[in-house]
Design a protein around this nucleic acid. Structure first.
Lengths: 216, 216
DNA sequence: GAAAAACCTAGGGTAAACCCTCAATTTTAA
DNA sequence: TTAAAATTGAGGGTTTACCCTAGGTTTTTC
């Protein structure tokens, strides 16, 4: 009986590549691919899945939320998180939500297969770098223990427009002119964005926006 | 005679996946992988390569520079650019430097194979989205024709330290305290960074830093 | 081993971002 | 259809970022 795998990643080429690797294995079978968070749950309604390879940074609905929601309904599914970012907040957050492992995209084929094998056996698996990151996080003993990822609140249509222009290096005045609204209005939206994204300044706004693909 | 392919991408898992797809084809053969720009030229000295799949955003030395330098020495090699970003500046810049095609990571397996096939036949190939981007760029008829990618000048040790702290949302004053230098000194470094990265403000600094992986 | 370049350091002045409070109108959802 | 959320905008102030200029120091380069 082959392990049925679903790949959730917004880069089709990456998903296809992984699928090719996995399908070479005689005990694994990729039965589906999803390019955003929302379509994962839809796929699960119509297909039986044993394991999900889940990108943490998915557009639409990020991997952390997907993980939480999927496991509520299908607690038997194993989830292996895949990410470009070795950030402690991502790792700890998705593990809290039930993922069985976390590997980075800069690790290779063999480690991927090893991770899947471990998880099939009910174990957990983490990339070496990820393990270090977690340890380092524990060492620092979390001054801001709860201040890791606040799952990002919903960003409104107008806020998104403003955010996009900020990332494109426009000043508040320029944004006001482009959107035909007052300077003060744009400042309001900026404030809301800083609060919602939990950023201290423009730098954080831009970094968080890119890392979480908020403009997709 | 199989086409000998080199894959240059800093995400091993992605490279391995692509390799798996390509090696399934009877006329293709992946003979090497590089995880940064600098090692490409070293590889070419010792191996005969027909085609390079080149990530545009490579750490160390980005794809655009690699493309230029490789073709100087090995003009017969075909280069297919691969990128996450559908940005006109990237596309036009790498094409000027001799790449034969440009595909996005969110396109799938079939398109990848088609692209390679086209390029083998001496044609060019672009993802549909990329074609649109180029066309749109031509329409706007380049007000800032030369202001696309200025290949990013070398960033000094101190600038890199400052840049890292900026991306981490620290203010100029905080950075000055951390580095034990004057506020004004940090501001100077900020100015140099704005100039070198061709950014208008902090937003641009952060975006360009992340997109070009300047902190790796 | 001296000239040239690159780097690090800073000052003064202006522009932009950020903060807090408050409130009217419009849109969305229960 | 009414309560909640979103959009709009104001006053008034503080902090931070950005621009231009420039001297001293290290590092190349010939």
């Amino acid at each position: 009986m082959k392990t049925k795998i679903l790949i959730a990643d917004d880069h089709s080429m990456f998903a296809d590549g992984i699928a090719s690797i996995l399908n070479e294995q005689e005990n694994l079978e990729v039965i589906g691919k999803c390019i955003d968070g929302l379509s994962v749950e839809g796929f699960l309604e119509n297909n039986e899945v044993d394991l999900i390879l889940l990108d943490v940074n998915l557009p639409g609905k990020n991997g952390i939320e997907v993980c939480k929601d999927v496991l509520k309904v299908y607690p038997k599914i194993h989830i292996l998180a895949i990410s470009m970012h070795n950030q402690e907040s991502y790792v700890s957050e998705i593990l809290k939500n039930g993922a069985k492992g976390y590997i980075l995209k800069n690790t290779g084929r063999d480690e991927l297969l090893q991770a899947i094998s471990s998880i099939q056996n009910g174990e957990t698996f983490f990339s070496k770098d990820v393990t270090e990151t977690i340890m380092r996080g524990l060492m620092n003993e979390r001054k801001a223990s709860n201040a890791n990822i606040k799952l990002i609140p919903k960003i409104t249509r107008r806020e998104k427009e403003v955010l996009k222009l900020i990332v494109q290096e426009h000043t508040t005045q320029e944004i006001a002119d482009k959107l035909y609204i007052a300077l003060k209005t744009v400042e309001s939206h900026r404030s809301s964005l800083l609060a919602k994204l939990n950023a201290r300044n423009t730098a954080g706004l831009v970094r968080i926006t890119i890392e979480n693909k908020l403009l997709d």
